[in-house]
Design a protein around this nucleic acid. Structure first.
Lengths: 222, 222
DNA sequence: TAGATTGTTAATCGATTAACAATC
DNA sequence: TAGATTGTTAATCGATTAACAATC
């Protein structure tokens, strides 16, 4: 059973979607689901779902399907939701503040410990209960707390420097919301970027096709 | 020359990255670049870059490479940056407000026309110069203005309904920041989602490996 | 011209899909 | 038991990489 050997990024990217869909099914009171039903609702083939799960083990019952609750739990486990991950936010501008106030860190298994900024307007205050420290205290804080991930919402000009400081202080991942491609040579530190621009430009491309290219067909049958 | 026939999503996702990297090179004063140099800086093979560009035409000069300025312009054109796309924001909570105030819509070829909300606190005001109308006026506004994209930052409970209204009113794309998977049967309307949770969970998975699995090797040579 | 680098076709690799025996 | 559906291997498909003639 040579599982888990090399899980492709395509599979990794689907895992959170499985988790999200299963959570919605659970909320809707669905108890069991087959790979083909789940596939239909997610726009995947049954085969792909079974193949994806096969990377990690056996989670279903032949002739029955998958129990929504336990499959969700298993995938949560695989994603590391119960590992007690911790995170700090760098930069409390509009976006940082919005994420601190809105984003459900705990639903994703993360505990938000602190935020850092340089503005005297916010340093010393709390945002949604989270203490804001001065950025110069970052290393001291990281020395005293196990912090797994640093979330970057600093101005683009400060992004690389803050990334360097986070890596030096030993974080294992950087969640990058700046529009800068970060250079992190250490292979054991993971950078996950959320590039709003890339997303909007991809959308821009997609709506720019069809209008002048293909003929506009109407709704599909199913 | 049967180009542009079917551009894969993998290629589409790389186009904005090319655009971003070329913009940075341009800012750094680089005039020409070869596919191998660009590949090295982006972590792609030269072959892949040439193959990607091949989908759209010929943009380089043999023996010389690509002119940074003109390649950037060409890719911008492909992405639809000069099409005068327009966008409105639905929901001016923390996240919507942050995006309105921070995101450079115009750098991505979009003009932000208006925002909509239901709170009497914000309706009638302006956020960074953008007028905020009541959500009930959405259809009227869309009837009077050509709007290509609706940006969704409404509460998850309102997401599907607002998506339906946008589609009925004729938008061509939805930029979805809610954590809800939207169902949009019309095949000519594109949904592009930014799922913060999916991104963080993928990061969670990646940092959960390695720590206990593989032995931690140090930096790679190049 | 010689050297460099593209455009483009062919080969390889990896991911998705199909098939089916195992079994609930 | 019969029907359904999984786990898992094999076949297919598509994307990436390699190769090289064309040409600046």
């Amino acid at each position: 059973m040579k599982r888990n050997a090399k899980v492709s990024t395509a599979v990794i990217r689907r895992l959170p979607r499985y988790y999200r869909h299963l959570s919605e099914l659970q909320r809707a009171g669905v108890v069991r689901i087959s790979s083909s039903a789940l596939g239909k609702s997610m726009g995947l083939t049954a085969s792909q779902i079974r193949q994806d799960l096969f990377c990690f083990g056996e989670f279903g019952q032949q002739g029955y399907g998958y129990k929504v609750d336990s499959l969700k739990e298993e995938i949560g486990e695989i994603l590391g939701i119960h590992r007690g991950h911790t995170i700090v936010v760098l930069g409390t501008g509009n976006l940082g503040r919005a994420i601190i106030q809105n984003f459900k860190f705990s639903s994703n298994g993360f505990q938000l410990l602190a935020a850092f900024d340089v503005s005297s307007q916010v340093v010393g205050t709390r945002i949604a209960g989270v203490p804001v420290y001065h950025a110069r205290e970052l290393e001291q804080f990281l020395a005293g707390h196990r912090v797994d991930v640093g979330l970057l919402t600093v101005p683009i000009s400060a992004a690389q420097e803050m990334a360097n400081r986070l890596v030096s202080a030993g974080v294992r991942g950087i969640w990058n919301f700046t529009n800068r491609e970060l250079s992190v040579p250490q292979q054991d530190v993971v950078v996950e970027s959320v590039h709003f621009s890339d997303s909007l430009l991809a959308l821009s491309y997609m709506i720019s096709q069809g209008g002048d290219g293909q003929p506009d067909t109407q709704e599909e049958s199913e």
